[in-house]
Amino acid sequence: MGSRASLLLRQEEIEEIQRETGFSHNQITRLYSRFTSLDKSQNGALSREDLLRIPELAINPLGERVVQLFFLEGEDEQVNFRQYMRTLARFRPLDPSQKNDKEGVNSREKKLEFAFRMYDLDQDNRISRDEVLQVLRMMVGVNISEEQLGSIADRTILEADTDGDQRISFEEFCKAMERSEVEQKMSVRFLD
């Protein structure tokens, strides 16, 4: 499968993606085969439905939200392989050498940004109480009282909110997650 996929993918494309994302050649071909197997319509781009068709995603409480984030880059409702890889590049493990590299595609900041976007639906770079509430509801379930979740959301906001605007900015989010080992937690060991 891998070799067939690499056939479909031109060498210069692979190199370009390699430069851009840091994935190895093997990883790119492997992911490309995954990409094509997801792409039921065979048009070189994934639609929301393509991704949501993955059975495991259906039971993931945040699956839909994650899928949504794949479509942030593209203007239309399609994501091509480049965009797909760009999103996945955030989850590459961080080398110890580039620990302080804030610009890398897989830097801590980029990883955190992805988590931040999980909340920030309206993309105003602020997490509001409602947005926290929505995520909470997805995770905990609907059979829980509004007050209960609301108080959790309040607390979350209160903890992270340093400038008192009742919303969490990305900086505040990073600060709140300071002690968390995001680099490790938000990394996937992509197979070579």
Binding site: I54, E56, L57, V66, A115, T156, A176, S180, V182, M186
Partner: peptide, 27 residues
């Protein structure tokens, strides 16, 4: 433990599971 961290840890767990599902990686 802070509330933010707790929520985000769960969020990250789910999120990473979703990413692994999307990439077809069984980690």
């Amino acid at each position: 433990p802070s509330m933010t961290e707790q929520i985000n840890e769960r969020l990250i767990d789910h999120m990473m599971a979703a990413i692994e599902d999307i990439t077809g990686h069984h980690g």
